[in-house]
Computed example of a mutant assay.
Amino acid sequence: MENTEEKEGSPTESGKLELLRQVATGIAAQFGSDCEVVVHDLSRHPDHSIVHIVNGHVSGRKVGDGASTVVLEQMESNDPEPKDHLCYLTKTPDGKILKSSTVYIRNGKGRVSAILSINYDISRLLMVEGALRELVTTQEPAQSEPEKIVNVNDLLEDLIQQSVALVGKPVALMNKDDKVRAIRFLNQNGAFLVTKSGDKIAKYFGISKYTLYSYIDTKQQEGKTV
């Protein structure tokens, strides 16, 4: 019997990406220049996952740019049934507050092959929140600090700083256990998906790449024996 399932890279998959481009353009046209809509192709390297973007000035991104935190998390976890993340707050590097939604698109085999992201700049609306409360209210509890939308090149630096903050001391004062803890955090949050991240992380923590990956292997082995 002929296999009629969709295959990655097939015309059907290409047609799906083209449909997402059309949908993205329509959404952005409906809501205006403050509404950024992004299509990520997960078959691409995370450094270049954006295949379509409308109103990229909102976050400063363009076609060919890398993945956001949300996309890296999906690539890292490879969750076969992720739940769409709707109406949450994000923040751009220049301080804009966005109301965002992330929709996971599956291929014929049920695997997530693309992501449609909608980011609406509500910075100006927040100044008149009383009159426009219904439009800017999110479905999640208020966050003390909105999530950041960053390019993949900036994401690694941000994750490294988070790992240092997690340990609570500068690298110069870290012992082996501190560095293992920091590197474990980086591994769990997709830092090693970034191109040449191993070199940068090893240099930052003052260790060799062999030591770096031995720290990761050590933690993975400990996780298996617990």
Rank of each mutant, 00 (worst) to 15 (best):
residue 1 M to T: 14
residue 3 N to A: 12
residue 7 K to N: 13
residue 10 S to A: 12
residue 10 S to W: 10
residue 14 S to T: 12
residue 20 L to E: 01
residue 21 R to W: 07
residue 21 R to K: 15
residue 23 V to T: 06
residue 26 G to I: 12
residue 26 G to L: 12
residue 26 G to V: 02
residue 26 G to A: 10
residue 32 G to I: 05
residue 32 G to K: 00
residue 33 S to L: 06
residue 35 C to E: 03
residue 35 C to P: 06
residue 39 V to E: 03
residue 40 H to A: 03
residue 43 S to P: 07
residue 46 P to S: 14
residue 48 H to L: 10
residue 48 H to C: 12
residue 51 V to N: 00
residue 54 V to Y: 05
residue 55 N to Q: 00
residue 56 G to F: 01
residue 57 H to L: 01
residue 60 G to M: 11
residue 60 G to T: 13
residue 62 K to R: 07
residue 63 V to N: 02
residue 64 G to M: 02
residue 65 D to P: 08
residue 66 G to C: 09
residue 70 V to C: 03
residue 70 V to H: 07
residue 72 L to R: 12
residue 72 L to G: 11
residue 73 E to A: 15
residue 74 Q to R: 14
residue 78 N to F: 13
residue 78 N to T: 11
residue 79 D to S: 14
residue 80 P to R: 06
residue 85 H to S: 08
residue 87 C to A: 05
residue 88 Y to S: 07
residue 89 L to I: 06
residue 90 T to N: 07
residue 91 K to V: 06
residue 93 P to M: 04
residue 93 P to D: 05
residue 96 K to F: 04
residue 96 K to M: 08
residue 98 L to R: 03
residue 98 L to Q: 06
residue 100 S to Y: 03
residue 109 K to G: 10
residue 116 L to A: 05
residue 124 R to K: 13
residue 124 R to I: 08
residue 124 R to T: 05
residue 126 L to V: 13
residue 128 V to E: 06
residue 135 L to S: 00
residue 136 V to W: 04
residue 139 Q to H: 09
residue 139 Q to E: 09
residue 139 Q to V: 14
residue 140 E to F: 14
residue 143 Q to V: 15
residue 151 N to R: 10
residue 152 V to C: 11
residue 153 N to F: 13
residue 154 D to G: 14
residue 157 E to L: 09
residue 164 V to C: 02
residue 166 L to Q: 11
residue 167 V to N: 01
residue 173 L to M: 10
residue 173 L to G: 03
residue 175 N to E: 04
residue 176 K to W: 02
residue 177 D to N: 10
residue 180 V to G: 05
residue 181 R to S: 15
residue 184 R to N: 12
residue 185 F to H: 08
residue 186 L to A: 10
residue 187 N to E: 15
residue 188 Q to R: 14
residue 190 G to T: 06
residue 191 A to R: 01
residue 192 F to C: 05
residue 199 D to L: 07
residue 206 G to Q: 08
residue 209 K to Q: 14
residue 210 Y to E: 13
residue 211 T to I: 07
residue 212 L to W: 04
residue 212 L to F: 03
residue 215 Y to C: 03
residue 216 I to M: 12
residue 217 D to V: 11
residue 217 D to N: 06
residue 218 T to P: 01
residue 218 T to V: 02
residue 219 K to F: 08
residue 222 E to P: 04
residue 222 E to Y: 11
residue 223 G to H: 13
residue 224 K to S: 14
residue 224 K to N: 12
